[in-house]
Design a protein around this nucleic acid. Structure first.
Lengths: 173, 173
DNA sequence: CGTTATTTGATATGGTCCATAACAATTATC
DNA sequence: GATAATTGTTATGGACCATATCAAATAACG
């Protein structure tokens, strides 16, 4: 084909069943047809993920915690005494990229690196008292504002089903 | 608290119910407890999305199409005669970032920009013959390798339920 | 008509996230 | 004790995302 470089006065094809889409009568712009896109798992998944993260950030605005930072605090709380490599790798964060992240959390006095006496190469990660307090407040915000929103949108049983399917995909795809 | 800057010979706390996790007997490293993380919507959603994209790229390796590029081709095919702004915005892509993307697709002769005669500012987007052919092959690959994987993992009815819930989240969260 | 405002594609630029290579200090291996 | 491996770190580059700005074209409006 190679397509002629100039359109012939608007009519590549009368557009399916006519209606004269883009000639004279232009309403509010006319929404595009998503078509098969709305059935693509990756597409819908990505859009949902963006919306969820966006909502998460709004809920956490007062605490200034990103999803990634929240996950670090949760994991450190649940697994005290672990070093950077262990925490980072289970979160899928590469060690080099984890450094700046910890610098941030540590500068805000939310967690601390402690040089291990077993292996003086590694830094053991611990939540500070402030970190524990902030995490506790974060959990409440997430529960009451964020996850609650999901419940009222899908219902508890659907919510559970969704989480289950996503976990399955995350682990077995 | 402010945490003493050196750990006292490995024992921030005996770790829940003992078992002497990190002292002497170290097996394969001992997996960390995800805890509440595995119930966090955002966390599971993000991980699932990464896995799905990763799988998509593998399936499309022969055609060298990313999820974003595939979505552009799909949308242009379904909505011929639209300009860059329209295609980009419905995909959530900002106009400046869409330029390089189109440069790429156009350089590979998959789509073409046609200066509109109605409005000589805008470029109308069209798939080339090669673009249509590649998209057709891409659709088959996605259907047989990618989405099929999802079906055998969840079953058709669960797949439909998942897509529905994700769409709801993407649109109403 | 002409002047101003808006739109479209494009460039430049900066930020964030992700990935790789390399390094010093420390520990493990042999 | 010499060599290899590990830990945290730095440097760096790529991919993606966001904003400001621009020239060309069009729209709006006096």
């Amino acid at each position: 084909m190679t397509v002629s470089k100039t359109a012939e006065k608007s009519s590549e094809k009368p557009a399916e069943t006519a209606k004269g889409r883009k000639d004279a009568s232009e309403g509010p712009g006319e929404a595009l047809q998503l078509g098969e896109l709305s059935e693509q798992l990756g597409y819908v998944l990505k859009r949902a993920q963006l919306k969820v993260f966006e909502n998460f950030l709004r809920c956490m605005a007062s605490l200034q915690l990103t999803p990634a930072q929240f996950s670090v605090l949760l994991l450190v709380e649940k697994n005290p005494g672990r070093n950077q490599t262990e925490i980072a790798s289970t979160l899928g964060i590469l060690r080099p990229n984890f450094v700046a992240m910890l610098d941030n959390l540590e500068s805000r006095d939310l967690c601390a690196r402690i040089r291990s006496t077993n292996d003086r190469r590694s830094h053991i990660l611990v939540l500070t008292d402030k970190g524990k307090a902030v995490l506790a407040r974060a959990k409440k915000l997430v529960a009451t504002k964020h996850e609650a929103r999901l419940n009222e949108l899908l219902g508890p049983s659907n919510r559970e089903a969704l989480l289950g399917m996503l976990s399955k995909i995350a682990n077995e795809f």
